[in-house]
Amino acid sequence: MRRLLCAFLFLATGTEAALCESLPSTVPLTLTQSDYDGGRIYVPVRFGNAMGTMRLDTGASTSRVGLAPWNKDLPKIGESRSTAASGEAAVCEDVEARNVQLRASQGPGVARNSYELTRCARNDGDDLLGLDFFRRARFSLDLDRREMELFDKVPPESRLAPFRLLGPDQRLIGLPLRLGNVTSVGLFDTGAELSAVDQSFVDAHKGLFTPVKNRLRASAADGGKISSRVYRVKQVALPDGHVVKNLYALAYDFGPLRQALGRQVAIILGYNFLRKFAWEIDLTTPASPRWSATPRK
């Protein structure tokens, strides 16, 4: 009875995602693999009566879907303009969806009674579930186990470090780190199939990188194309002392992304970096998000 009551309360609450006390929700992840240890992460999502999957994208502050029969009747509430890593800009509709639920294999589903997202008439990539869906939530992310767990509160014994808030509206999250001996910030981006580094940073610190491939045509999460090179980043060190060596990364001009990321971000930490750790992410206090990472063996 308690589980049924909790599932109802998820859908009956307001716009914030809610979690039921003492009943963590386990959400299964579907992973796809690609070259250079890259990959994509998908989660099961229900919009009203429509069930499907969306690509988990913490590098997007909001969710984005392509125009489709299941969402064509969602009411328009505004417009927004976005610029992708490829530099392509698009003006899309902001729409309101009702009863949006992240489907769990164990525990109650994690849902929003009302959720605003972006609907684009042209969308060559995946439907993206953005970071704002998890506002005021705490969750773990473990790609080896192919699951995400969401909890109602942070255990008092948890030792979490602060994220760096990024962008003019402070709605993206980054990790302070060192690339070799250079201090920088990396965007925490589950939607990046492969980690990426700003070409200008590579040019200024060539000793920190090993060239792998001179020319590669890559796809951004929205389907746009990026002309890039492939390098190995010799060393990425987190502030907790954990180090990743010889990380594959695309290199391209971050110029189109600067307005969203700010000047401090030199690297995007994508799938091939994130899979090396089990993560705990605490967004319960939006102004002070926190994290911890446990290396995978």
Rank of each mutant, 00 (worst) to 15 (best):
L250K: 08
K234V: 09
Q264G: 14
V236E: 00
A249Y: 05
A266T: 12
R263P: 13
V244E: 08
Y248R: 07
P239G: 02
V244H: 01
P239S: 08
S227K: 07
I267T: 10
R229K: 14
Q235N: 12
L257F: 01
Y231A: 04
R263E: 13
A237W: 03
Y248C: 07
L247Y: 00
A266S: 15
A266M: 11
G262A: 14
A251V: 04
K234Y: 04
Q259P: 13
I267D: 02
Y231I: 08
A260Q: 14
F254Y: 13
A251C: 02
A249S: 12
V244I: 13
L250G: 06
Y231T: 06
A260D: 10
V265P: 11
V236G: 00
A260P: 02
Q264R: 14
K234P: 05
I267M: 11
H242T: 09
A251Q: 01
V244R: 08
L238G: 01
V244S: 09
V233C: 03
R232K: 15
I267Q: 04
R232N: 12
V265F: 09
L257W: 01
R232V: 08
V265S: 11
Y252P: 03
V243E: 11
R258Q: 11
R229H: 08
K245P: 00
Y231C: 05
R263Y: 06
Q235E: 15
R232Q: 15
V236W: 00
L261P: 06
Y252M: 06
L261H: 05
Q235Y: 04
R232F: 10
Q264A: 14
L261D: 05
A251F: 01
Y252K: 03
L261E: 06
V244F: 02
A266V: 10
N246Y: 02
L261R: 06
S228H: 05
S227P: 00
L238E: 02
Y252G: 03
V265T: 13
D240L: 03
Y248P: 04
D253V: 12
